[in-house]
C-alpha cells in the first residue's frame, strides 16, 4: 500500500470524480537553506498518470511550481462502482510511487 498517495474515486451519473493528495516536498530549486545559504536542490514530481481499468484517463506533466503536497482532481466519463483506479507519480530524482483503489 502506498504511503505517499491518498486517493478517492466516486462514480455518479456515469461520471467518475477522482481526487487525490500526494505527499511530496515539491522543492523548486530556488529556495535557500537559511543556515547554510546554499540552494536546496530541486525535487518535484514531473509525471502523474491515472488509469481506469488499465486505460489512461489522465496524464500530467508537472513543473516545480505545483504546491507542496500536491492536490489533483479531475473527472472522466464512465466508470462504475468496483472499477480499478490506479495513480502513479515519478519525480525528477527518479523516485516514484503508485496506488490502486476501487471506485466507490
Amino acid at each position: 500500500m502506498s504511503k505517499s498517495i491518498k486517493i478517492r474515486a466516486k462514480a455518479k451519473n456515469g461520471i467518475t470524480t477522482v481526487k487525490s493528495l500526494i505527499s511530496h516536498p515539491m522543492e523548486t530549486g530556488f529556495r535557500k537553506n537559511k543556515k547554510t545559504g546554499k540552494l536546496i536542490p530541486a525535487h518535484f514530481i514531473q509525471e502523474v498518470v491515472c488509469k481506469h481499468n488499465g486505460k489512461v484517463v489522465l496524464n500530467c506533466e508537472w513543473g516545480a511550481s505545483i504546491s507542496k503536497n500536491p492536490y489533483l482532481a479531475f473527472k472522466f466519463k464512465g466508470g462504475k462502482k468496483g472499477d480499478t483506479i490506479e495513480l502513479s507519480w515519478k519525480d525528477n530524482k527518479g523516485q516514484s510511487d503508485s496506488i490502486s483503489t476501487k471506485v466507490r
Binding site: 486505460k55 505545483i66 492536490y71 479531475f74 466519463k77
Partner: peptide, 17 residues
Amino acid sequence: SAIFHLPEGTLPEVSTR
C-alpha cells in the same frame, strides 16, 4: 506549472494547487 493530457472521455475539468 502543469500540462494535463486528456484522453477521450476525460472531462476538460481539472483542479490543483
